[in-house]
Amino acid sequence: MARNLILYSVLPVFVALFLFSPETTQASLQGDLSRFLPGSGEVQGWERDGAPQAYRGEGLYEYINGGAEIYHEYGFRQVVVQDFKRKDGKSISVEIFEMEDPESAYGIFTFKTNPEDREISLGSDALLSDYYLNFWKARYLVTLTGFDEDEETIRGLQNIAHSIDTKIKADGNRPSLVSALPEEGLERASLKYFEGNLGLHNSYPFFTEDVFRLKEGIKGDYKGGYSLYIIESRTAEKGPVDFDDLKKSFKASSRYSHFRSLEELIFRVEDRKGKQVYVTQSKDKTLIVIGTVSQERIKNIFAGIQEIK
């Protein structure tokens, strides 16, 4: 009896230690995502509306129907969806996506955000649009959608997001390639990180073929009115895509015209919309600037590419 009493009094301590050990916290991140959702009333005024819906792997198709490709390109694992409502009928939908790793979560975050979005302090990065909010943290992307732009709804988005943010007890870093972009003049909300050609194609349709043999890429818009792409190819260890092959691809494509070599390692073409596209290579990267920029400025921009941290 006495032995049982000792056992019963000590057991909860062991259970608590087990549950909150760093290893277990990490392991539990792979489980049910609904644990990150606020309960009814946890965020003042907002009640859960129905039960959470979860979709894993291939099951994303059931939820998202068309358009699942881009999530899979970035390494989709699972998603949980939960609606919230207020007594006055306002509604918010929450989606928590678990991706393969923090880089993937960051990538799909940049895919889903817009240059016009407003930065707010949540997770690792957060951007608020007119009626929705995205933030990423660790390997999670959280998307909250309001169905109007009223102040109450926007406040609700932020409050629910804050609750989820505090429940995700992990962190992660942006992909190192982001650090290659020069900081000066960079519009941070414009960043797009690519892990495949579909993401790149959605940003700018360079080619219909995999000319860059894309491994990863980053794009940023700059205050000078141009965009800078840094693309690393899958054969990076052997160097980038052959520069002459790259020239040939741009020359052969009907998307581009007015090919002109500016220097030995820089050439320029014009796209269908009349935008200038400047291309060069540096070490293992292909560098591209799109925009109307002087020849002198182009050399400075390319020279400003940072060493990856």
């Binding site: 699942a68 490709e69 899979h72 194609h201 073929e209």
Partner: peptide, 17 residues
């Protein structure tokens, strides 16, 4: 409709085509 999308949700151009 699922067969309109390639196995494994490939995203290269041929899959989109």
């Amino acid at each position: 409709n699922r067969t309109f999308h390639k196995e494994g949700w490939q995203t290269e151009q041929s899959a989109i085509e």
